[in-house]
Design a protein around this nucleic acid. Structure first.
Lengths: 369, 369
DNA sequence: ATCCTGTGATTAATCCTTTAAGCAAGGTCG
DNA sequence: CGACCTTGCTTAAAGGATTAATCACAGGAT
């Protein structure tokens, strides 16, 4: 391992690798890592004493002087505990696993990871990640790898919220579901989709809209919770908001899929109908994006001719002109909460619904008369 | 830190949690994990023998019968090695750290992680991740946490490619830079931005374009490699392609930042000039997105009135109409390569440039006459 | 009968921490 | 004065794997 000659010892760095102050012990060996025993020897105490000091055990009775000597020695030698030895002994690793189906294909994954990471960091834990890509074989492999390493807990995450079956082996470990539910009675974290549906519709109603359309893959909605929990819940919230005012959906425009092109097709067909709704609720931002395009093609102005609202808060929502008003998936908060639940031994089973804030931008206006 | 010949993946790894067949040993204690000693006892052999069998050591001379007994015992008891104990002894953890500045804010991060994950998995390693958010304090913390855990290596990643200073402590560990370079002579992985610049310009030239504009934060380009390496390199490639045909850039439109709104402003100003270029190279997809909007506002059709090319291959590139032709950042491949380099003991320092494939969609046409 | 060699195993040391148990000296209490 | 507690430490035993060193035995050569 070659080291450049311009090595400068950073001030904050206790000593790591700086052999300057280290005593040579006989042979001139390749830098052995500093162990607790080294620290103890340096401080003129037993390893037990050193361990007590460094772990700040209050029940241990040690002189203030001894305490200082140990601390000084550790500092000087640049001691860092060997995590493997420690875990072996105490049977904890301060490591948690985040196993998800997909991390890369959705742009939201990052938010969950970041939230999880931040809590993990605050609680002195680290995060191991693995991806199953929905493949049972890979999943088995990932779970194996994690359990071998005796992680203290597992966050089992789905990138699209849905109901899933938790592998048996995870049930023996502390597990929290992220963006998913199951029948196993585990703590779970989900976005408050139904409330968001209600809020989105309410925002429209509040502006005076009465002819409201929904654009999405309706066929699957309220049917297959294993594919997407979100769609059904959003829909239910929307219906409830309308019902509270004695209204019903004016139109449900069914799309084949959830992509921009589907939104384009759907919106085009909506605009070709006899009476155009004054507002359209798109079931996600990609559809909304396509809807924007279709509106432009048809010479309709947003929000003057037609209002649009949506769900997710994809980065493009901000780029669109006008900005897209949308209920944000609170991914970061969800990731955070999942790890908190995992680390909280007393957390009870059951689902936590994380609010989806409505990001108000310019796509909702008053209905054209 | 030399370690004997690389261990080979144990083949016994099947058993899973089939505790069903586990024998109770005396007390009815809370299920103790099965250890190697248990397996050995079950097979009527020493732990040494069991270890040899399970690790498939060829130099060990064991009878075929003993081998089978160990394997059977491991299988039956559902043995899985204790990673902590193993790491403690062999001084390897089969764990690699991915430390990045940001994982969540860019939608590309996922690709890198996924690539890293996939080769880590193939090589029987797991991935620890940490995020510094550019904060030196958090960075120190993250590096500490990783080194405590004696990771076998660190992938130090930047989410926007640039030149950075590697913390001293990392230089004592095996480190590979991902999407970054440094002056430390470490192996590094970067996208082949200059080639991409060349390819993008060449694609335009090939269609007959001669009046070509560039849209981007030109001020920073070729100046501050710490902010963005990409911009300067892309620019150089573009210039070279033009020079090869004896041409120069028709216009350089400077934007204030890299966002969609900047692209919109820049494109608008471009279109207001006296002689409009026949093609515009946007320095990234967000700018291109804004440029699309501006073109639409100005009543210019893409690609009939004006062609647009770009860099990155953001998901929106596909959603736009027409699809945006753009040079893709090969994030997944980069992540993959970084881990490969990390795990390849013999990998030499120096930068690996990963090709950026040009995704041809519909935004390049022939120049209007 | 003795020495040597190859085979098929075992014993014991080691990796580094944590922690239960014990010990020596000095002070307190009855 | 002896029993007993505190204080401030130390010793030694885990914890579960890998591995250097050793051993018992059978068979062949001398």
């Amino acid at each position: 391992m070659d080291v450049p000659e311009d090595r400068i010892k950073p001030a904050y760095d206790g000593a790591a690798g700086s052999a300057t102050s280290r005593e040579y012990e006989g042979e001139h060996m390749a830098q052995r890592r500093v162990t607790l025993a080294d620290v103890a020897r340096h401080a003129g105490l037993s390893t037990t004493a050193a361990s007590w000091v460094l772990n700040e055990r209050e029940d241990a009775r040690l002189s203030e002087d001894a305490r200082r000597r140990v601390l000084a020695a550790a500092q000087e030698l640049g001691y860092r505990p060997n995590a493997a030895a420690r875990s072996l002994r105490i049977r904890k690793t301060a490591t948690i696993a985040l196993i998800s189906d997909t991390v890369a294909t959705t742009r939201f994954a990052g938010g969950m990871i970041r939230g999880a990471l931040s809590v993990a960091r605050d609680r002195e834990h680290v995060l191991l990640i693995a991806e199953t890509q929905g493949d049972p074989e890979l999943e088995r492999h990932a779970i194996d790898a994690m359990l071998h390493r005796q992680v203290d807990g597992v966050v089992y995450a789905a990138m699209y919220s849905r109901r899933l079956t938790v592998p048996q082996r995870l049930l023996d470990t502390r597990t929290v579901l992220l963006n998913a539910t199951s029948a196993h009675g585990l703590p779970a974290v989900l976005p408050a989709e139904e409330d968001a549906g209600y809020a989105v519709a309410a925002a429209l109603l509040g502006q005076g809209h009465r002819r409201i359309a929904v654009l999405g893959r309706i066929e699957s909605i309220e049917r297959s919770p294993r594919r997407s929990l979100a769609a059904g819940l959003r829909m239910r919230g929307i219906r409830r908001a309308l019902a509270d005012r004695g209204l019903r959906l004016a139109v449900s425009e069914h799309t084949r899929d959830w992509e921009a092109r589907d939104g384009h097709a759907g919106m085009t067909s909506l605009l070709e109908r006899g009476s155009i709704p004054s507002a359209v609720i798109c079931m996600n931002d990609r559809l909304a994006f396509g809807a924007y395009q279709a509106a432009a093609d048809a010479g309709k102005a947003i929000p003057d001719d037609i209002s649009i609202v949506s769900f997710d808060d994809d980065p493009i929502a901000e780029w669109l002109r006008p900005g897209l008003t949308t209920a944000a998936l609170p991914h970061e908060e969800m990731g955070r909460l999942a790890v908190e639940l995992l680390l909280d031994e007393t957390a009870e089973p059951g689902t936590r619904w994380v609010p989806m804030p409505l990001r108000e931008r310019g796509s909702i206006g008053q209905p054209a008369t």
